[in-house]
Design a protein around this nucleic acid. Structure first.
Lengths: 355, 355
DNA sequence: ATTCAATGTGTCATCGATGACATATGGTGT
DNA sequence: ACACCATATGTCATCGATGACACATTGAAT
């Protein structure tokens, strides 16, 4: 009974043949635009269903010079769920607009980022999102190819606009929270110094903001930062299999101080996770003996105790980010980019010193 | 000086024009096959570099009837890092072979899975990987379109072959480990009963294997399973924002027993994370008062204490999985599919009862 | 009867890369 | 001298969807 059983999916021409109309009519039915008689429409729809026709996105893309695909460049995707979350929500929004995203994980490596961008260009993505750009020269390749690019949350290069998160509001809330609980010796455990702003970037970097909020949080309480309580390094070492060893190491050294801190403010949940391990190992309890606050709200709810943390608006970043590049694709320019708020999420890792 | 500044990337024809040769010669240079004089080659290469030419993957795909793309269908990507890991390694292997992967997260929803598969077909993926297939009828759509499909680790449908993991070896190791440490009252906290095998699937399901290993681990020690120590439910409830509440709830009820268990074997790190929280909250310590073992080795190293767990071969799953579908694409049939081992990873959440 | 707009349908060039095929030149072997 | 092969390069149909354009037909308005 059936003859049109070629291995690949059917073509529009086959649909036309089966429905006894021209390809143009089929196209009109599928696009739901132009004049088509009810009778022709019915025949085409029947043929589509019978053959199981699915339009070929490559052919359409070639003709329309639009792939309906955007690239999303990410960092450390298997270590830090932050990136997966942002990517997930961008993808979600993309799907709702008939788009699909391509992910690429450069893992912090500029050479890999370059390869990823070349792949994106070959695939003719209509735009690119960066959730961590590395090298300005790489980002410029996109501009040269006429592909809009947008940075989400972390803006490392002036070569592309960015949707930023106001890291300060949440971090200040966190500091205020600790101070209100009576903490005076608050340690800072922070990320990659590379992120602490160097070179000509568009505004302060993520870590700069968090550090500044830490300082002004202390200042507001009439305190001055104690260098002995500050640890800057990286979020995690990839070589070590992406464990939280950095936070562990830093917290351990803090706990060995003569006068140890009563609270630790870590700028990443992964760091905080390591801090929790160090505290536990020292035979102390969180939050009874020491309070810990993280950042991002990624693995926070899975930790013991559940971690109080500064949440990032990951869904908004992804969704608004996609809509922004979509606008750029369609109108040629970006809409006004919002500054998204971060906010403190209270869980069980902070408590009053007065116990 | 430059004139060829069209917004989109240049075409092969433009390269040919600039190099003063035909498109065929350019193609020969790029493919590195066929005869080309050194002089022509040099001119083409110079033109490619000058214009910044990148081949158009859509045009190539259309012509070759190959997209060099594979779809990867995933579950609960933002809740369980297991999926991200497998996807990451499949992508990594794909890149090394000139392929790219498209991810789609059905989140356990068959209707979404269907949509994802339709998107895959429209994009003309050359094959599809499932790390959690939901509905057999969806998987059949691919067969009808002539697209090879392969299940990784979880095989829920006979409609596609699978690379399976021997969940038993690792789980048995885990049980032996606990028994050797003196544990006799070992609780089982397991996943979605849906995964405990029903209907005609190809062999036992993941949870069946884990449960059976639990039982035979007990039997080997001359113990019989105590129904009061078994909790079956789901890994996590998505409604609750993907927290580990299920493991927490189960462990809490176990700790409230007259005779509480001395060890908990959870079949997912996320479940184990919840168990750790319950133990902590009860004022007990892991591993001093109670031992906990997880499964997957995803967030295990970030937990407090670092979790002893049964590791899944996520890298092998991804890499070998990709290579298998690549073979299927090229030869039309799958190679022999291995049964990959799981293995116990010792960390700090298990200890002897004799303290 | 004539003009015009609305309705309905078909033809075909195009997007960019590819590879089958045709063609041309020079050198080697007999 | 001729046959033959290696080398070198160009022409063009093709993949499948799209949309500009042309062509019909019908009914209403003038």
């Amino acid at each position: 009974m059936n003859d049109d059983r070629i291995s690949r999916s059917a073509t529009l021409m086959q649909v036309a043949a089966r429905a006894g109309v021209s390809t143009a009519t089929v196209a009109r039915v599928l696009k739901a635009k132009g004049y088509v008689s009810d009778e022709a429409r019915a025949r085409v729809e029947a043929a589509v269903k019978a053959i199981g026709y699915r339009p070929n996105a490559m052919a359409r893309g070639l003709r329309q010079r639009r792939s309906f695909t955007i690239g999303h460049m990410l960092d450390a995707i298997i270590v830090n769920p932050f990136f997966v979350n942002v990517a997930h929500w961008a993808e979600e929004e993309a799907l709702e607009h008939g788009y699909k995203t391509f992910l690429f994980n450069h893992n912090g490596d500029g050479a890999r980022e370059r390869i990823g961008i070349e792949r994106f260009i070959e695939r003719r993505v209509d735009a690119v999102l960066f959730t961590n750009a590395i090298a300005t020269e790489n980002v410029r390749l996109l501009a040269a190819a006429g592909i809009p690019a947008l940075q989400l949350e972390r803006s490392k290069t002036p070569a592309a606009p960015a949707i930023r998160v106001d890291n300060k509001v949440g971090a200040l809330e966190a500091m205020r929270h600790l101070v209100e609980l009576g903490h005076r010796r608050i340690a800072f455990v922070g990320g990659d110094p590379d992120l602490i702003g160097r070179g000509a970037t568009a505004g302060p970097t993520v870590e700069e903001d968090r550090l500044e909020a830490y300082r002004s949080g202390l200042a507001a309480a009439g305190l001055s930062p104690d260098p002995a309580l500050m640890r800057l390094g990286r979020y995690y070492s990839l070589e070590a299999g992406g464990t939280s060893s950095e936070g562990y190491r830093h917290a351990k050294s803090l706990l060995e101080l003569e006068e140890r801190p009563t609270a630790i403010f870590a700028t990443c949940d992964i760091l905080a996770a390591g801090a929790l391990q160090a505290v536990y190992e020292a035979g102390l309890r969180v939050p009874d003996d020491i309070s810990v606050i993280g950042f991002d709200d990624t693995i926070a709810a899975n930790l013991t105790p559940q971690l109080t943390t500064v949440a990032q608006p990951m869904e908004d970043l992804g969704r608004i980010g996609f809509r922004a590049v979509l606008a750029a694709i369609e109108t040629g320019e970006f809409p006004e980019l919002p500054l998204l708020p971060s906010r403190l999420v209270l869980r069980r890792s902070t408590a009053s010193t007065a116990r």
